[in-house]
């Protein structure tokens, strides 16, 4: 078969085009492989300084300071030496400009206080679920009443823990400075007396690097 000069040029062009597509695809796949990031586990206890925003190290520092403080405050030491008072945790008001899960901070603090063996807690976030289960056991007719948990036997909390987290952010062209202040208080419900209070301050700053990166 005799091919014209024009058809040979078209054929060569198609081959070159497909080779080009293959080359681009190859380069793309190589670059994608090159860009893939290795996933690894890190130490949750390490100091984290990715940004100046509220981070895990701030949470851990706050929890450690607050727990140590409440456990060694003389009047609290005296109270907890004879019994394990019951307390509940109210919300921690987030007064910063960031979105911070303050419940996570109080979860850590209450877990450590509970595990110290000095305090007991009632969980106000689970009241509805408890009521539902007690209603089922007592009113549904499904549960043997000899084994049902009786209503009205729960222990009332004696203390309430509450507090707030605030921040002051300052910045200029080369530096950003963030100051956090976490305040936690323990109030005696019956008398309304604040039995304990403490603060934890954290300062974080970020300087712009030499090349402004």
């Amino acid at each position: 078969m005799k091919l014209s000069k024009q058809s040979i040029q078209v054929e060569t062009g198609k081959r070159l085009k497909s080779a080009g597509v293959l080359l681009v695809a190859g380069l793309l796949s190589v670059s994608l492989i090159g860009c893939s990031k290795a996933i690894k586990y890190g130490d949750a206890a390490e100091v984290e300084t990715t940004t100046t925003s509220f981070g895990s190290t701030d949470l851990q520092q706050i929890a450690a300071k607050m727990v140590d403080s409440v456990l060694t405050f003389p009047p609290i030491v005296e109270i907890t030496s004879k019994r394990r008072p019951v307390m509940f945790v109210d919300t921690i008001k987030n007064k910063t400009s960031e979105h911070i899960d303050t419940e996570s901070i109080t979860d850590t603090i209450s877990s450590r206080l509970l595990r110290s063996g000095k305090f007991r807690f009632v969980d106000m976030t689970k009241v509805a679920a408890l009521k539902k289960q007690l209603d089922y056991q007592n009113d549904s007719g499904m549960v043997n009443q000899n084994t049902a948990t009786k209503m009205g036997q729960q222990i009332g909390a004696e203390y309430m823990m509450y507090g707030n987290l605030s921040s002051i952010v300052k910045r200029n062209s080369s530096r950003k400075d963030v100051y956090y202040k976490f305040t936690l208080k323990l109030i005696h419900l019956q008398s309304g007396i604040v039995e304990w209070s403490d603060e934890k301050e954290i300062r974080k700053s970020k300087e712009k690097s030499l090349f402004g990166l």
Partner: peptide
């Protein structure tokens, strides 16, 4: 174990 983190 592991409850204490590094404090800067």
């Amino acid at each position: 174990q592991g409850s204490r983190s590094w404090i800067p």
